[in-house]
Design a protein around this nucleic acid. Structure first.
Lengths: 152, 152
DNA sequence: CTAATTCCTACCTGATCACTTGGTTTTCAA
DNA sequence: TTGAAAACCAAGTGATCAGGTAGGAATTAG
């Protein structure tokens, strides 16, 4: 049983963005290619990337030979931005969602609120500290510079 | 939209444990009283406290005038123990659940795995650093020593 | 033109959360 | 001894939602 988990939206979103980042030299990439490489339903990924586009994280080119590219340099996009675009707030409970304070009605609830704020902040700190460039660097290290893809 | 959220199990569990801790001088406390004070369905709370009992975090006394008490000193029980007893692993994705490594089948997935490990560890660090005694101290501060209960 | 591709809206389906229902068993107090 | 209070137990339920499908319209390179 896992409860405090990300949905596939966030996970697929990060995978798709990393895929785009890795294949950035190939120009714009068709959704179909990303979906195949990352083993994600193409139609489902379409919905996710639409959200990423509206959030300004990717750019699209329509029509034949169209596709997607990152909207900015990989060092400028954090995992946190991707996750929050797709998942909304990463707060563990409603009462500590940023910008939308949910009113507490109970004293012990207010005591526990401090816990959830700390959890929320630590999650955001972690994901905001990791950029797509960091992931590319890790990916290249795993690739070990010999052309063989290690599936560790 | 919040996705990485705790279920009510974890939140209710912490509230119930704090309620027990605050009323510890009254001896064992009936579930009914906790449920009323914390505004939780009594039968639902019953299921949660059964889990806490099996985890060794509370003790029960059956029969009339029975009830529950903390199994150990409030300074010895962390929020993390309560949450993991009720919610299971706090890992954000399956592949980084402690003790149950879920096999990655994809190179980019393995790169992202490092993200989820960091998130998991930071969540656990936060909740393991907070004991019930810390919550009691916060509660007493809020109470402001004048007997009036502030609902901040 | 046509094939490839993005974009858009709606629908579906199985799982799960947050309970509820309806008991049985144990123990205290009168 | 008996009634009530309480813990304990197992199964069902209704609404919501994650994770897709389905079906097409709009756009553009060749």
């Amino acid at each position: 049983m896992i409860v405090m988990r990300l949905s596939t939206k966030g996970r697929y979103g990060v995978k798709a963005m990393l895929d785009l980042a890795i294949h950035t030299s190939e120009g714009h990439i068709a959704l179909k290619n990303i979906a195949e490489r990352q083993e994600i339903s193409e139609h489902y990924l379409e919905q996710l990337i639409a959200t990423l586009r509206k959030a300004g994280l990717v750019k699209s080119i329509r029509g034949a030979q169209g596709g997607y590219t990152l909207a900015q340099d990989p060092s400028q996009t954090t995992v946190g931005e991707i996750l929050r675009a797709l998942e909304g707030s990463l707060a563990p409970v409603d009462c500590v969602v940023e910008d939308e304070p949910f009113e507490c009605t109970n004293a012990t609830q207010c005591v526990t609120k401090k816990i959830w704020e700390k959890v929320r902040d630590s999650i955001n700190d972690v994901v905001d500290s990791i950029t797509l460039q960091d992931l590319i660097d890790d990916y290249k290290k795993m690739n070990n510079n010999d052309g063989y893809m290690y599936y560790i």
